[in-house]
Amino acid sequence: MKKITISDVAKHANISKSTVSQYLNERYEYMGEQTKQRIHESIIELGYSPNYLARSLKQKKTFTIGIMVANILHGFSTKVIRAIEDACNEENIHTIVCNTDEDPEKEQKYMEMLQAKQVDGFIVFPAGENAKVYQRMLEQNTPLVFIDRIMSDLKIDTVLMDNERASELAVENFAKHGHEKLAVATPELKPYMTPRLERLSGFKKALQTNNLPVKEDYLISENLDSLQERLQHVFTMEDPPTAMLANNDLTLVEMLEFFKKSNIRLPDDISIIGIDDVPFANVYHPGITTIEQPAFKIGKKAAELLFDQINDTASEPEVYRFAPKLFERESVKTLDE
């Protein structure tokens, strides 16, 4: 079959080739609605597919961005990616998603591969230890936005949740229900893991603000593989906690599995709150009180910041924080009941 061209569309719509080109490049300033409708109908009827390679060569853009995600299994990451993809789709920009598994070498390999493909920019959940790579990208004026993690030595637009406020919401809710022995479980702390560090810091600050004791044995930081073993130690202590915060969705799953195997009942034996509004929170029995990260807002903002950089309309790099939201369900027991 003959390949349909812009000339074919122009002839079918009885409109100049340059007008069709302006339509395809979304330059509508002096184009009437009837003209746009005729071009649209001709494109559909003829089955025309734009030549993105020619468009890229002309505008010196590939209309493609790379998304580096640290762990695609996180529900938060999946939602953020979806929000970015939605925003890119509206701008006719393609996305390439790479999962780095928190591995700096893997991240660098993917970024070099995508740079070779001349993507227009990157949205990155930084795996850490690649500061020199990011700095080189900045020196090359490569559009770059971080999500979820701050690298304070680099001036890069960064979008994340107000993590300390998330922990504060949890502590306030536990305190409201009469709990004083509060624990928190988080994956292993690492210098570049901003959410983990800030949520733990916020937890400690909130305990002090609410005149509650800070007990080191209740501050649990472990690899997920060994988290249940640590929980076993905590819940066989003479004075175990009555309430516990799960730092993220994967931690919450490990906690729930441990409680089930150990016949620890929710909320009679332990009250829990999870950061990340996991899909099963509302259908689990009892319903799990969660703190939602505004993932779609974060993803959309990251995309908008990247578009500004690509289009040379960006302002000075900033850190943008979005407020968490508490969804109260049945997993927190009032102690005086």
Rank of each mutant, 00 (worst) to 15 (best):
T158D: 12
H74K: 10
I298A: 05
D308I: 00
K79T: 06
E26H: 15
Y192F: 13
R321W: 01
L252T: 06
V20S: 09
H177I: 09
F122H: 05
K215V: 04
A183M: 06
N51V: 09
E318L: 05
T35P: 12
N14W: 07
S152Y: 12
R265W: 03
N99Q: 07
E90K: 11
K204A: 08
Y134V: 06
A303R: 03
S21Q: 15
R27L: 03
E85H: 15
D239H: 02
F258R: 02
N247Q: 13
I72Q: 05
E198G: 06
G274T: 08
K205M: 12
G299Y: 14
P240V: 05
T251F: 00
I84C: 01
F174I: 06
F307Y: 04
T289H: 03
K325V: 10
D86T: 14
P126G: 00
D308Q: 00
L73I: 07
L266T: 03
L73N: 10
V184S: 01
R329I: 14
E198A: 14
R136Q: 14
S167W: 07
K60A: 11
T19L: 11
A175Y: 08
D225P: 01
Y23A: 05
S201L: 11
Q118M: 10
N223E: 15
Q118W: 14
K300V: 00
G202C: 11
R82E: 15
L224D: 08
T209W: 12
T19D: 11
L266V: 07
H94D: 09
E41C: 13
D312R: 11
H94R: 01
K109N: 11
E129F: 15
E41A: 13
M237Q: 04
M161R: 01
L160R: 08
L256Q: 12
D148W: 12
A243S: 13
I72L: 09
V278P: 03
A10N: 05
T142E: 01
R55L: 00
M244A: 06
V145D: 08
E330V: 01
P324F: 07
L114Q: 04
A170D: 15
V214L: 13
S167D: 04
Y48W: 08
P240H: 05
R149T: 03
S42F: 01
A127G: 07
M113I: 14
G32E: 14
E105D: 10
E222K: 11
I84R: 02
C88Q: 06
D239W: 00
R329T: 11
E238L: 08
Y23G: 02
